[in-house]
Amino acid sequence: MSATIKATGVGSHPGEDQHAFDEAVRVVLGELGEGLGVPYLPEVPGRGATATMTGRGLAVLDDLDADLQPAGWRLTGSSGSPGVDHRRTRSLLAQDLDAVEEQARDFAGTFKVQVAGPWTLAATVERPRGDKVLADHGARRELAQALAEGVGAHVADVRRRLPSLERLVVQVDEPALAAVLSGSVPTASGFSRHRSVDLPEASQALGWVLAAVAGAGAEPWVHACAPGTPWGLVRGAGARGLSVDLAVVSAADHDVLAESLEAGESVALGVVPGTRSAALPTDAQVTERVLRWLDMLGLDPAEVPGLVVAPACGLAGADTAYARAALALVRTSAANVQSG
């Protein structure tokens, strides 16, 4: 079997206005729109709260409303009358999809969109009475189910806009999952921590969302770059793609990633820094790092069709030139790995 090693980005890009988003779309499609690339819907959180990962996640919710408070996003119930900021975040998502549709309507390969996962939303959004949704078992369940319902409609919308797609990936972002499970998410006062969530509940809620993605005809991935993310639990919940930062994965994680690749699933391996805090490596260095990892696992590059080369995390903390260079680097490195 001859593998096709792919390249992609995590999702976020630098900038503070609509021009920055339009430029991010051009960068993504220019660097990843052909050959080995998996282009994606960029996120430009510098535009404000409505454009952050949390805002984007709330835009997808079905039958739950939210508004923006000084402390951040807060659920307001299921009145069917979302506040002005909730309407804005939904409008911004639609506007961003309009821009991608205009430039990529005839794209026929694999395309990726991202959405905040149920546990990251529960750890960042407040319930109507205050404090995080994480504090309330019933609220956690309601939020996860609303997200699952909304994701199905979101997938259908993307499919309608990009009708030629061969494959659609939905990356569920769960950067807070490890903190939720370890009981390290601070309460509103900051003087205490929310109790850890039991593993079966964590798996169930994530599973609802991943099943909704699969049920809508897309491929469910999960991304997290936090150490301690339980990749075995994530895969068991239904993820068919694991997007990781290679620098923080544990020995047990390596086993799960290998099992995923051997099963024909996807692993997006984060091997390029997301910011200029570290020098951008050469494509030879990135290629060597990926090949060494595969060799450590006893895997042949020619037999891992689900391998994807990516930055370790999002690129929002970089600048446009670095973001473009990082995507070009993962594309070139993917080609190098494929050629052996």
Rank of each mutant, 00 (worst) to 15 (best):
A7M: 11
V10E: 01
S12Y: 01
G15M: 01
Q18F: 11
A24P: 04
V25S: 09
L36S: 13
G37K: 00
Y40W: 08
L41C: 07
V44I: 09
V44D: 10
V44R: 00
R47W: 11
R47A: 12
A51S: 15
A59V: 00
V60H: 08
V60Y: 00
L61P: 03
D62L: 05
D65T: 13
D65R: 02
D65I: 11
D67K: 12
L68R: 09
P70R: 12
A71Y: 04
R74C: 01
R74T: 04
G80Q: 08
R88T: 06
T89M: 10
L93F: 06
Q95F: 15
D96Y: 08
D98I: 13
A99R: 14
Q103P: 09
Q103L: 14
A104P: 04
A104E: 02
A104M: 05
R105Q: 14
T110C: 00
F111G: 01
K112R: 11
V113I: 15
V113N: 14
Q114I: 02
Q114Y: 00
P118F: 03
P118N: 04
T120D: 03
T120K: 00
A122V: 03
E126V: 02
R127K: 11
G130A: 07
K132Q: 15
H137N: 10
G138W: 15
L147V: 02
A148P: 05
E149H: 09
V151C: 05
D157N: 14
P163T: 05
S164D: 11
V170G: 03
Q171Y: 07
D173K: 05
P175I: 04
A176L: 08
G183L: 12
S192M: 14
S192W: 15
H194Y: 09
R195H: 13
V197Y: 07
V197D: 03
D198C: 04
P200I: 13
P200S: 11
E201Q: 11
E201Y: 08
Q204T: 13
L206G: 13
A216R: 06
E219R: 15
E219G: 09
W221D: 04
H223C: 05
A226P: 12
A226C: 12
P230I: 14
P230H: 14
G232K: 13
L233N: 12
V234L: 04
R235P: 06
G236S: 10
A237T: 02
G241F: 02
L242I: 01
L246C: 03
S250R: 15
A252H: 12
A252Y: 09
A258L: 05
E262S: 15
E262T: 14
A263M: 13
E265Y: 06
G270C: 04
P273E: 00
T275C: 04
T275D: 05
T282P: 15
T287G: 12
E288F: 06
R289C: 05
V290H: 05
V290I: 03
L297T: 05
G298E: 12
L299V: 15
P301H: 09
A302T: 03
A302N: 10
A310L: 09
A312N: 00
C313Y: 01
C313D: 06
A318V: 00
D319Q: 03
Y322W: 12
Y322N: 07
A326W: 01
L327Y: 05
L329W: 02
V330S: 05
S333L: 03
A335V: 05
A335C: 04
V337T: 10
S339W: 13
S339H: 13
